[in-house]
Design a binder for these strands. Structure first.
Lengths: 205, 205
DNA sequence: TTAAAATTGTTGCAAATGCAACAGAATTTA
DNA sequence: TAAATTCTGTTGCATTTGCAACAATTTTAA
């Protein structure tokens, strides 16, 4: 990913883009309407958070290095405020969509790279979202699990897969009750569809 | 959307892009890996279809005018073949991502417009997908319905909303059983949360 | 304009799921 | 290294959901 390297090395030549550092626990941005802000996470991890009307913390999305996020990607949302919290130290590139999608007047060398990078990163985002939608569309926990495992398996060219986060987080990702998911995993093992050791899973079909 | 108009009027100058017509019932494209094909639906309607292992027809996604789709947006998927079926007469712009994301060597006037349009359309797509994910993440049918209604309501600045497709399709979109959804709608009416006339819904809270 | 197809509305019942609660293991933090 | 926190694994129970099936209505196509 050449463009990304160029962007990462950027000394702050272009006034339209900011590279900022956020320490763990700090807020990277809030989703304020009509700004069309875009953020590229160069390093670290962050969560998209909302407090629902009961005051419960909802983790809407999780971001890793090379993920792209921002209010530009989110539907208008007057009721609840969304914000992005750094769960590790983060390095972030911030800019407004409308400032960069047209050719830079200064002919800044980063703009061409940025547009190209932007397309690439958004394309990745859409692919991941489609995978997520496909999984969430399944009606039962079993189908969701198998669908998720299948995607991991195809991606890694192997029947042996590793769930890249805790089972608690997996339940959140599949949007199901954790205990019900554990029960279903147990059934899948008992019925011989999978075997499991920690978060390493082997598909037996 | 100026770029879109320019693209629509395009006479086939650029060999890298094709504008094609598809009559109702014909197949626009199949999702073949590693091609990174992108399609822009200029007019008409189409469905993204898969036949599952039982031979049941699954409608994975539905596309309208100005929607963008293609295998470039979809996770690798060796098992089942996906294809896009024109459910009305369609006018489609087809190209390969790798052919257009770099500057056209011929300096073709459509390329600049296309990149700009592409970003805009993909941004829309991501926003819609995020809305969909947010809805699908809700645990109960009631929450899914209210979440969906809320998004429609915010978008139209009104408590009176119109579901833009049949209730059968809505159940598909929310990924729930239709009869269970009808039951839940009835409960929402009985409990005074909404009133309903056909597919016109009024939010009473 | 009639026949066919799709949509809406409804119900009983079985199965799946969420919820609450708890104990033990593993991991992180002070 | 001790204490606190998070994660895993499990269960009973109430609720929600999907499934199957049917009639009535509306829409579409011949």
């Amino acid at each position: 990913m050449d463009d990304l390297d160029l962007i990462k090395d950027m000394s702050n030549d272009c006034v339209k883009m900011q590279k900022k550092f956020f320490s763990k626990g700090s807020i990277i941005t809030t989703y304020i309407e009509k700004r069309r802000q875009i953020c590229i996470l160069l390093s670290g991890k962050a969560d998209l958070i909302r407090y629902d009307f009961n005051g419960n913390k909802d983790i809407i999305d999780r971001f890793n290095a090379n993920d792209i996020f921002g209010e530009a990607f989110y539907p208008v949302n007057t009721n609840n405020e969304l914000f992005v919290l750094a769960t590790e130290d983060c390095e972030v590139l911030l800019f407004l969509y409308d400032d960069v999608h047209v050719k830079c007047k200064n002919n800044c060398k980063f703009h061409a790279s940025l547009i190209s990078l932007l397309l690439e990163l958004i394309l990745n985002k859409v692919v991941h979202q489609n995978a997520r939608i496909e999984i969430l569309s399944k009606r039962t926990i079993r189908e969701k699990l198998l669908s998720y495992f299948s995607i991991l398996s195809v991606k890694s060219f192997s029947k042996n897969i590793t769930v890249p986060f805790s089972l608690t987080t997996l339940a959140d990702y599949l949007s199901v009750d954790r205990s019900a998911m554990m029960r279903e995993i147990k059934s899948l093992i008992d019925e011989g569809f999978i075997s499991k050791n920690g978060n390493k899973i082997r598909l037996l079909y």
